[in-house]
Simulated assay, not measured.
Amino acid sequence: MTSNVSLGPYACDPALSRGRRHADVPAPTRTEYQRDRDRIVHSSAFRRLVYKTQVFVNHEGDLFRTRLTHSLEVAQLGRSIARSLALNEDLVEAVSLAHDLGHTPFGHAGQDALNGCMRDFGGFEHNLQSLRVVDWLEERYPQYDGLNLTFETREGILKHCSRRNAELLESREPHGVGERFLLGRQPSLEAQLCNLADEIAYNAHDIDDGVRSGLVTLAQLREVPLFDRYRSAAQQQYPQLADEGPGQRRLLHEAIRRMLSDQVYDVIDSTRAALARHQPASVQDVRRLPAMVCFSEGMRAQSQVLKQFLMRSLYRHPQVVQTMDAARRVVQDLFAAYMDAPQQMPPAQAGSAERGDLQRRARTVADFIAGMTDRFALREHERITGQRLLG
């Protein structure tokens, strides 16, 4: 099936996809990228995202963002921008929904802990793990492992990749998704857009979650020009909204809404200018040119100030640090326990770990831990160690 949507010459056309690793019969009513999106939504890894955290551990509150809600927000932002730029919305949505499938429990703290555990076994990269999930770890089809997604979706999922891992991917799949990292080329514009939509989404919702948690205040946010100008404008227009009291939530939401809107329009305008400057006539041109989905210089600088504020005031807040230290210990203890006694894992993982060498055992353990939700990891840790570190 072909898409009825008008695409720019630089956009990914599903009819011209580089295809799947295993041949599949085309669907009569869906394009290839729509099929990718549907496979992702129905995957086990996608469902588990609802119990994986962004900043706050799952037990800390029902309204904080999870990896699932974050992925939905990225998809919404991405589709809105893609429509204005004549990019492929379905591909943007598929990549957005899949980009965090390989994230560990406990956010970046869990990822860092697992990377440390895997230091002697090739390390752990969550982007590469997301690719492992869709290529190998999902078990849904009788013909092959994984979800058998198109090249373009898989390329977008692999946002970052070390040279060592890119070389390994290239040896297994010549001219595949690892090649661009070796040649210094760009991914598709749809993949570039997902990268930026990811940044826009997490900056905005971390402000929201930070204030909701009480770890960040609207008064503190006045030192962030990108946010404060929208807060000030909203307060001038709606004087009944105060920094404190009943109006605080509405003021916060209105400021974030305005900030998101301006960032979206900034990306659209800046990317249009880049497209006009470079005039890519095909997806192949896009790969050879500099990145074109971008903020303006002014918005990029202001976004960086916001990120620095969040790092200083939220991610390094003593309460968050204390929780993340405990989370790192959970991951480290689980890794050591499973390496020592693989039979503590379910039979499929235990069998895989016991049949191979130490390298295979470590990767099997890492796959199992990375797939855990926050609450399952905590329950497993308590079962094995008798200790309850969180929750």
Rank of each mutant, 00 (worst) to 15 (best):
H317V: 09
Q76Y: 07
Q111S: 10
I384D: 03
R119L: 14
A291F: 00
E152D: 03
L221H: 00
L183N: 06
M1A: 08
A86R: 12
L7A: 03
L168Q: 13
A341T: 09
A327V: 12
M372F: 10
A337K: 01
L147S: 03
D209C: 12
I369F: 03
S296Q: 13
V286Q: 01
D243H: 09
T53C: 13
D120S: 14
Q344I: 05
D145N: 01
P346K: 10
V286H: 01
S303V: 10
T217K: 06
L168D: 15
D228R: 07
P28L: 04
H70R: 02
R360T: 05
D333I: 11
A45G: 07
V5Y: 14
C117V: 09
S71Y: 06
S130P: 01
V55I: 14
H126W: 05
H103S: 08
S96Q: 03
C12A: 14
S282M: 06
N88C: 09
V267S: 02
A291V: 04
G19K: 12
R119D: 08
R360P: 00
T31F: 02
E199R: 13
S71V: 07
Q237W: 06
V264L: 12
Q279P: 00
V55H: 12
D135N: 07
L226T: 00
E380G: 00
S84F: 03
R35H: 08
A234N: 07
A341P: 00
G102T: 04
E152K: 01
D367S: 10
R250S: 13
V57P: 09
H22I: 09
H99I: 10
R37E: 13
F309G: 02
E32I: 12
L137F: 10
D135P: 01
L252T: 03
I256E: 05
A234G: 01
V133Y: 06
T385I: 08
L91R: 04
Q54H: 10
E173W: 15
L85P: 01
L226D: 04
A273L: 14
L358S: 15
H42G: 08
H160N: 09
E254Q: 08
V264A: 09
R300C: 07
T323F: 04
D333E: 11
M118A: 00
L390R: 02
R375V: 11
R272P: 01
V133L: 10
S313H: 12
